[in-house]
Amino acid sequence: MNLCCRSIFQALVRVLAIFPLVALGVAATNTVAGAHEIRPAIVDLTVQDDGTVRLEMSLILEAALAEVGAEHADTDESPNAERYDSLRLLEEEALAAEFERSETRFVEGVRLMAGDERIPLEVETLELDPVGDTDFARLSRMTLTGRLPAGATELVYSFDASFGPSVIRVPGEEGTNSYSAYLDNGSPSAPIPVEGVITMTAGEVFVDYIGIGFTHIVPKGLDHILFVVGLFLLSPRLRPLLVQVTAFTVAHSVTLALAMLGVLTLPGSVVEPLIAASILFIAVENLGTDRLTRWRPYVVFIFGLLHGLGFAGVLNEIGLSPAHFASGLLGFNIGVEAGQLAVVAGCYALFGAWFADRPWYRTRITIPLSLAIAAIAAWWVVERTGLVG
């Protein structure tokens, strides 16, 4: 790289270095979900002494009414995105009217089984907020109730896949959850005992959370995927990749554990724009160097701390049972690592194995792909800080 290009690149890196600070400053004012973000419905199941079964739900009602679907990571990917966007513009009275027209369909999509018998549910309460800032999704609150059949000992819950993913939780003592599970694609919960608490072994929780961690990366974690791809693109050689991935893994493991223990917390409205800024920085740096610089591992480590907080947001929504906190946390972390290794393996199979020794690898692989990643990440920074809808 000649002196002029090097000077331009160094100036660009210095400008990008303040991007996280800008993102932090703007995002700190936002505390709700991005307009197009798919968030699971959070459902708390309780059985009262008189036999009433209650499902208290917090969800993005517009996404469920539009049937965006659990297979999408972003509402814009759904063929029903236009209907979702139109529902977001409605005031609470109009949205309530839309729900009333679709209430039967919605209630049919919330299944609660006692053995082979389905428990009929009805909407007891529905709380909607004013439309507010349409750059951000609003959460609605709903309570569904039903009657426990005579002799029922276990309940199984499921949520129609067309409504999106859901998290089922059974509240325990002192604000904890005796059971929680992330359900995707309409999958049913484990049988939940009517009396006592659900019994899951540490091994079952461990295996379950490996799957949750893996799917959070592949296929749903596009931002984390692009970050790992950015690390791979710097150089097809093993040593640079190993140094970067190790720094990233250690860092996000630390903040994930600290966040789940309640020692360190930051709202998603702050973390998500910073994660986007980290991807942008890595992609742009790839354009200016083809080797591991002395500061790159430290930068990757700092960004890994941010990504760990992003992972913690997923676990906080699900709610780890205190009885299996360690096994769930370990399983989730292993699942995340397996997802990252799958991304690295995919990159190697597509590019490294075939083109690593070609003299044009950097000009035809690294630079074009890094430019594409930088463009996507730059858009995410702007979008996640609420500067555009």
Rank of each mutant, 00 (worst) to 15 (best):
V197M: 01
R291H: 13
I42T: 11
F159G: 00
L264Y: 08
D223Q: 07
G151V: 11
L315P: 10
I365P: 03
R6M: 05
L12I: 15
I168E: 01
L231H: 13
V26A: 02
L234P: 13
L95D: 01
V170M: 03
A66D: 06
V47R: 02
A27G: 15
G109H: 10
P236I: 15
I282K: 01
N30D: 10
G109C: 10
A349F: 07
V123F: 00
V13H: 01
F214Y: 11
E127M: 04
S253Y: 10
R83H: 11
E122Q: 12
L292T: 12
T255V: 08
G310Y: 12
A356L: 11
I119W: 06
V228K: 02
V167C: 00
D208P: 08
A247V: 15
G25V: 15
N80K: 04
E174S: 07
R384V: 08
V205K: 02
A283V: 12
S370F: 12
L155I: 13
D208N: 13
E108C: 00
A312I: 09
E154L: 04
Y209K: 02
T255F: 04
V13Y: 01
P149Y: 12
E117K: 09
G151W: 13
T143N: 00
L59W: 08
V53C: 07
E204T: 13
V229R: 01
A33C: 00
Q340C: 05
D357R: 11
F227S: 04
G172V: 14
P273G: 04
L61A: 02
V314Y: 02
F281L: 07
A247G: 10
N80H: 14
L89C: 00
L45G: 07
L350H: 05
